[in-house]
Deep mutational scan, measured.
Amino acid sequence: TIDDAFRAIERAIQAENEGRYREALKHFLDGGEMIVTAAEKEASQKVRNLLLHKGKEVLEWAEHLAEWILE
């Protein structure tokens, strides 16, 4: 659900702030994927587009974090 997705993102932010970057990455990926999944089930085109945009933002952040971890 969207609530689960945002809880995962909150955990990711907390982990990132505490320097637990790999854990943060996992939570960002989980949250982003949950948002995209919820968007695919959404009946309203406007809400679907907003959710897809937010999911994409979260997944892009996860990608940047992963690249930073690997440096």
Rank of each mutant, 00 (worst) to 15 (best):
T1W: 14
T1K: 06
T1D: 07
T1Q: 11
T1Y: 09
I2N: 04
I2S: 03
D3L: 15
D3M: 14
D4F: 04
D4E: 15
D4R: 05
A5S: 02
A5D: 01
F6K: 07
F6P: 00
F6R: 05
F6W: 06
F6N: 04
F6Y: 10
F6A: 02
R7F: 04
R7M: 06
R7Y: 05
R7H: 07
R7P: 02
R7D: 06
A8E: 13
I9Q: 01
E10M: 12
R11G: 08
A12W: 06
I13W: 09
I13V: 08
I13D: 01
Q14C: 10
Q14S: 05
A15N: 03
A15S: 05
E16I: 15
N17A: 10
N17E: 08
N17W: 10
N17D: 04
E18D: 14
E18S: 07
G19R: 04
G19K: 08
G19N: 04
G19Y: 03
G19H: 05
G19D: 02
G19S: 04
R20F: 07
R20Q: 06
R20V: 03
Y21S: 01
R22W: 09
R22H: 11
R22C: 15
R22K: 13
E23V: 04
E23M: 03
E23K: 03
E23P: 00
A24Q: 01
A24G: 02
L25Y: 09
L25V: 09
L25C: 05
K26V: 06
K26N: 03
K26G: 05
F28S: 01
F28L: 13
F28T: 01
F28H: 00
F28P: 00
L29F: 05
L29S: 03
L29H: 04
L29P: 00
D30G: 04
G31H: 06
G31R: 04
G31E: 01
G31K: 05
G31M: 05
G31S: 05
G31Y: 08
G31L: 14
G32R: 05
G32L: 15
G32H: 15
G32F: 15
M34R: 05
M34W: 07
M34C: 05
M34L: 15
M34I: 12
I35L: 15
I35F: 15
V36W: 09
V36T: 08
V36H: 07
V36K: 14
V36C: 13
T37G: 06
T37H: 11
A38R: 04
A38P: 02
A38D: 04
A38F: 12
A39T: 03
A39H: 04
E40N: 10
E40V: 13
E40C: 14
E40I: 14
E40L: 15
E40W: 15
K41R: 13
K41F: 10
K41E: 06
E42F: 10
A43P: 13
A43G: 06
A43T: 12
S44F: 08
Q45A: 13
Q45I: 13
Q45M: 09
Q45V: 08
K46D: 14
K46G: 11
K46V: 14
K46M: 10
V47M: 13
V47R: 12
R48E: 07
R48T: 01
N49C: 14
N49H: 08
N49A: 09
N49I: 11
N49L: 09
N49V: 05
L50F: 14
L50M: 09
L50D: 11
L51C: 06
L51V: 01
L52W: 04
L52H: 04
H53G: 10
H53M: 15
H53S: 12
H53R: 13
K54F: 15
K54G: 07
K54T: 10
G55S: 05
G55V: 12
G55N: 03
G55R: 08
K56M: 07
K56N: 07
E57Y: 08
E57R: 10
V58D: 01
V58L: 09
V58Q: 01
V58I: 13
V58P: 00
V58F: 08
L59T: 02
L59I: 04
L59V: 07
E60Y: 07
E60Q: 11
E60D: 09
E60N: 11
E60H: 12
E60L: 12
W61H: 13
W61T: 08
W61F: 06
W61V: 03
W61R: 07
A62S: 01
A62N: 00
A62M: 07
E63A: 15
E63R: 15
H64T: 09
H64K: 14
H64N: 08
H64E: 12
L65A: 10
L65E: 00
L65R: 00
L65K: 00
L65G: 00
A66N: 05
A66M: 05
A66H: 08
E67V: 12
E67L: 12
W68P: 00
I69R: 00
I69H: 06
I69C: 11
I69Q: 01
I69W: 05
L70A: 14
L70Y: 09
L70V: 10
L70F: 11
L70I: 09
E71D: 09
E71R: 07
E71P: 05
E71Q: 13
E71L: 07
E71V: 09
